[in-house]
Design a binder for these strands. Structure first.
Lengths: 121, 121
DNA sequence: ATTATGCATAAATAATTATTGATCTATCAA
DNA sequence: TTGATAGATCAATAATTATTTATGCATAAT
């Protein structure tokens, strides 16, 4: 019962809903999400941890990157996350996707150097 | 999106989950829930309001009683509430049901006088 | 009318969560 | 090594929620 309440608590925050929506099409690393939302990294890490603790996300370490994606091992939670994704209108996350794609583009071209370094103002 | 987060927030508290579970078999008035949980009335009213605001409960006034029941007008919310009810094991709410039934019995016999008056210690 | 009951709400306080800024660790590149 | 980057975590603070006590309002019984 506590676990159930916890899952809902994880879903009760708009930033976390946006994260789930952003992960709709696959995994992302923390710096991607930071770039997409234009908010500080500890904040993103905090919300990712909440989602992970609730069993809604999985992580995977690769070099110095942590990748997060939707955890589909539990059917109920998976259904919840899917319904969240379905219920958030695309235009609510347009800006997030735009910033993400721009960031991804920069990443792709400047491959020689580090990918996620501080974006200049 | 805010509305969606709100629905989940309403579901993120154990007392509120217990209320939904208790309402599984039909409507109850506030004093029933107070008796079932053995907690103070304003606290129950507070949680009922949260659930109602989120669109998970409906209320109905009859004389001086307020009756609450599950709002089944929205399919998604209805599904959520059903899954909550299904996921909470019966033994988590045994005591609640026992106190409720005892209270209902007293109500039924002492019909002449007021039903929900302060229970003696 | 007067009194008692059912319930909501307000004010005050307590308890949780979220956010920020400052480290800290691990990994990789030079 | 040394330096830089990705990300976690901690400490301090801000912001929300929950709980309690007190009160107010409506209804109904006397």
């Amino acid at each position: 019962m506590r676990d159930l309440a916890n899952v809902f608590k994880a879903l009760s925050d708009e930033t976390r809903l946006r994260i789930l929506k952003l992960l709709e099409h696959g995994e992302l690393c923390v710096c991607d999400i930071v770039a997409a939302f234009n908010i500080v990294q500890p904040k993103v890490s905090f919300h990712l941890r909440v989602l992970k603790t609730a069993g809604l996300l999985k992580d995977r370490k690769e070099g110095k990157w942590m990748h997060y994606k939707i955890d589909d091992s539990d059917l109920f939670k998976r259904l919840l996350v899917l319904s969240v994704i379905e219920k958030i209108p695309e235009n609510n996350v347009q800006e997030d996707r735009r910033r993400l794609e721009e960031f991804m583009r920069n990443k792709a071209q400047g491959q020689s150097t580090s990918a996620c370094k501080e974006k200049k103002k």
